[in-house]
Design a protein around this nucleic acid. Structure first.
Length: 569
RNA sequence: GAGCCGGUAGCUCAGUCGGUAGAGCAACGGCCUUUUAAGCCGUGGGUCCCGGGUUCGAUCCCCGGCCGGCUCACCA
C-alpha cells in the first residue's frame, strides 16, 4: 500500500505539483466553525425522539442507532438490545453533542409522545448561510459516490464533512482528487458551508489542495487504534485515531493553564529551578545519575524542586510556584512514570492550615474550570470535591485501624515490627522504624480513603523538611491529600530553623546508613540559606499526572502522559 | 525482579485438537451527484514477534529471548 502512495507522490512531482506546499491560508480551525453554527445543549436536557432506525451499530457498551425522521437524522446511544434497522422506535434520553454531532445518549425505549427531531436540531444546529471558509485538516473518512465525494477532515479541534461535486470543482480537480488524494492526507479546502438533507454541517468544496501526503494507511475508522503499545510509541496515531486521546491531552493542557491562572491571580510568581543538581534532595527517592563531560562530574536529575524553591523564599520571593518534571529512578507501574509533572508552591507567612483551605479552593477552581462540576466519576465511584474535605489525623486513623496509639508506633520498635509481620508487609525485617510506620499506614489506612481526605499531622520521623507541630513534638504540621486511595498532594509548614534542619538531615543520613536508600542527602547550602532567615512558610506539591487521571477517569498514568517511558521496541 | 496473560494482513479481530490462515475496515478495479461505520460487484495482500528443539511437517507443542499488559515486589 505504501508503494502505491509513494508512486502517487512521484507522479505528482513529475507533474510539477509540490505534494508538500509551503503554506495554506485557513480562515479558522474546524472546531471554530462548528462552534459558530452549533450550540452545545445544556447539561441534562431530556428528549423523546421517534424515527426509523437506519442503522444499528455496536459500540463498546451498547449500540448506536442512526434514527431518521423525514430524512433528518439524530444519533441515539442506547443499551437496548434487539433493535433492527428499518424499524420505527421511540427513545427517551439526554441530549448531548458527541464528536460534534447532536445525539441522544443513555437512551431507553419509551412510549411517551415524541418531539420533532427537526425542531430539536433547529435549536442547536444553525443555518451556516453559505459562509465562505478555508479549512485545513487530515482526511479521515472518504465516501466516493461517482460524481460526488463526501469525506471528513479533522484537526485537533474537531471534524467537519466536506462535499465535492464534479459540477462545482470541475472535471480536472475532481479526477485529481480521485487519483491522488488518499485517506490520511492533509488537505486544505475552500468553499461554502451548508447543511445536508440529514442536517450535517458540510463544506461544499469549491477548491482544494493537497498539503501533505500520508504514506501509511490510517488505523481503522470504527475501532480506532487499540494496541496500547502502538498508542504509546506512536502517540500521533493515537491522537489521529482516538478522540478520547485528544480529549485527555486537551484537558491536560487546559488543566495546566487553569493552574497557572489560579496561582498567578493569587500573587504567585512562576519560577524555574535546576533539573541538573549536584545534591538530589528534597524528597525520599532514588535519583537518576548523569555525567557532565566538561566538569567531569556526576550530576543528578532532580527528584524535587523543594530546596531551591525555599531558597527563593529566603531570597524574598513571597509566593513562588514551579510546574515541571521530577525524575525518580524507581519502578514503573500504573501510577508511576520515571518522569512526572508536579506543581510545587510556597507561600511566606502561611502555615499548613492556610494550605488546607487553599487546596480546597484550588480543587474547586480547577474542577469548575475544567469539568464544570465538583462531583466527578472516577472508576465507577462518584468523588465529591465540595469543600470542606474530610480531615483525619494520621495517628487517629492508625488507631482506628490497628487499635494501637501513637506511643506504640513511635516507641515500641519491636511491637511495630511484629505488627508489620502480622500485616504481611514484605521485607519487614529489613525496614527501618520510620519505613515500617509508613508501610503500615499505607497498608491499613490508604486503601479506604476514596473521597478526598486530608490526612494531617504526620510523624516527625517521616518528614525531615517539615516544621515540628506546635502542639506535639513527635509530629509535624503536614498533610497529604488522598483521593481514590492515592496521594494527590503533600504539604507542610516548612521547617525554617537551620539548626533543627541540620539535625533532621543528620537523622536522614543515619537512616541511609541503616539501609534506607531513599533517605535524603544533606544540603549544606540549603542550611546556609535558612541561616539567613526564611520567613514562616508553607509549601505544597501536587502531582499533575494523577490529577489528570482523576479528571479524565483514567486508571493508567501512561494514558495521561503523551510519551510515557517504554523500552525501545 | 517474580507470577500469570498476550504478540496472526496497515487497523480491529477470528482460527489452526500439528498439514504454512480467514472476516470486517483500509487498499486496488468497476457502478453510483445529499452520503455519513454509505451501498453493490470484483481483486490483491501475511517472516502467524524472534531464535532454537521435537516432528515427515510447527503459526500451533517444548525451551530460550524480545516487547507489551495485569498482579505482586520495589516505589509516590
Amino acid at each position: 500500500m505504501e508503494e502505491i502512495r509513494l508512486r502517487k507522490l512521484e507522479d505528482l512531482k513529475s507533474k510539477g505539483i509540490n505534494p508538500y506546499p509551503y503554506k495554506f491560508e485557513i480562515t479558522s480551525f474546524i472546531g471554530d466553525v462548528r462552534k459558530k453554527f452549533e450550540k452545545d445543549p445544556p447539561r441534562g436536557v431530556k428528549v423523546v425522539v421517534r424515527g426509523k432506525a437506519k442503522r444499528v451499530s455496536r459500540t463498546e457498551d451498547g449500540y448506536m442507532v442512526r434514527l431518521s425522521e423525514d430524512n433528518v437524522e439524530i444519533l441515539v446511544y442506547t443499551k437496548e438490545e434487539n433493535l433492527k434497522p428499518g424499524e420505527e422506535y421511540t427513545f427517551e434520553g439526554t441530549l448531548d453533542r458527541v464528536e460534534g454531532k447532536l445525539s441522544v445518549v443513555d437512551a431507553v425505549l419509551s412510549d411517551k409522545t415524541p418531539q420533532s427531531i427537526v425542531q430539536i436540531k433547529a435549536q442547536y444546529d444553525f443555518d451556516p448561510n453559505r459562509e465562505k471558509v478555508s479549512l485545513g485538516g487530515r482526511l479521515v473518512a472518504l465516501r466516493t459516490m461517482g460524481k460526488a465525494i463526501f469525506g471528513h477532515i479533522q484537526d485537533l479541534t474537531g471534524k467537519i464533512q466536506i462535499y465535492l461535486k464534479k459540477d462545482i470543482v470541475g472535471e480536472e480537480k475532481f479526477s485529481f482528487f480521485n487519483d491522488y488524494i488518499d485517506l490520511g492526507d492533509i488537505i486544505g479546502v475552500k468553499g461554502e458551508l451548508f447543511r445536508t438533507n440529514t442536517g450535517e454541517l458540510t463544506v461544499e468544496v469549491h477548491d482544494f489542495e493537497l498539503l501533505s501526503k500520508c504514506l501509511h494507511p490510517l488505523p481503522e475508522k470504527w475501532h480506532g487504534l487499540k494496541d496500547v503499545e502502538v498508542r504509546y510509541r506512536q502517540r500521533y496515531l493515537d491522537l489521529i485515531a482516538n478522540p478520547e486521546a485528544r480529549r485527555t491531552f486537551l484537558l491536560r493542557s487546559k488543566l495546566i493553564s487553569e493552574i497557572r491562572r489560579f496561582f498567578d491571580e493569587r500573587g504567585f510568581v512562576e519560577v524555574e529551578t535546576p533539573i541538573l543538581q549536584t545534591v538530589a534532595s528534597g524528597a525520599n527517592a532514588k535519583p537518576f545519575i548523569t555525567y557532565h563531560n566538561y566538569l567531569e562530574m556526576n550530576l543528578y536529575l532532580r527528584i524535587a524542586p523543594e530546596l531551591y524553591l525555599k531558597r527563593l523564599i529566603v531570597g524574598g520571593f513571597p509566593r513562588v510556584y514551579e510546574i515541571g518534571k521530577n525524575f525518580r529512578n524507581e519502578g514503573v507501574d500504573r501510577t508511576h512514570n520515571p518522569e512526572f509533572t508536579m506543581i510545587e508552591f510556597y507561600a511566606a507567612y502561611w502555615d499548613y492550615n492556610d494550605l488546607i483551605k487553599f487546596t480546597e479552593e484550588f480543587f474547586t477552581h480547577i474542577l469548575q474550570r475544567t469539568l464544570g462540576t465538583l462531583k466527578i466519576r472516577y472508576q465507577g465511584t462518584e468523588l465529591d470535591f465540595t469543600p470542606p474535605f474530610r480531615k483525619v489525623r494520621y495517628f487517629d486513623l492508625l488507631k482506628e485501624k490497628t487499635g494501637k496509639d501513637k506511643d506504640f508506633f513511635l516507641k515500641d520498635f519491636e511491637g511495630v515490627r511484629n505488627l508489620a509481620r502480622e500485616l504481611e508487609i514484605a521485607h519487614y525485617e529489613k525496614l527501618t522504624h520510620p519505613k515500617l510506620i509508613d508501610k503500615i499506614f499505607e497498608k491499613v489506612a490508604e486503601e479506604d480513603l476514596v473521597q478526598p481526605t486530608f490526612v494531617i499531622d504526620f510523624p516527625k520521623i517521616l518528614s525531615p523538611l517539615a516544621k515540628t507541630h506546635r502542639e506535639d513534638p513527635d509530629l509535624v504540621e503536614r498533610f497529604e491529600l488522598i483521593v481514590a486511595t492515592y496521594e494527590v498532594a503533600n504539604a507542610y509548614t516548612e521547617l525554617n530553623d537551620p539548626a533543627d534542619q541540620r539535625e533532621r538531615f543528620l537523622e536522614q543520613i543515619k537512616e541511609k546508613e541503616m539501609g534506607d536508600e531513599e533517605a535524603m542527602d544533606m544540603d549544606e547550602d540549603f542550611i546556609r540559606a535558612l541561616e539567613y532567615g526564611m520567613p514562616p512558610t508553607a509549601g505544597e506539591g501536587i502531582g499533575i499526572d494523577r490529577l489528570v487521571m482523576l479528571l479524565t477517569d483514567t486508571d493508567t498514568i501512561r494514558d495521561v502522559i503523551l510519551f510515557p517511558h517504554l523500552r525501545p521496541g
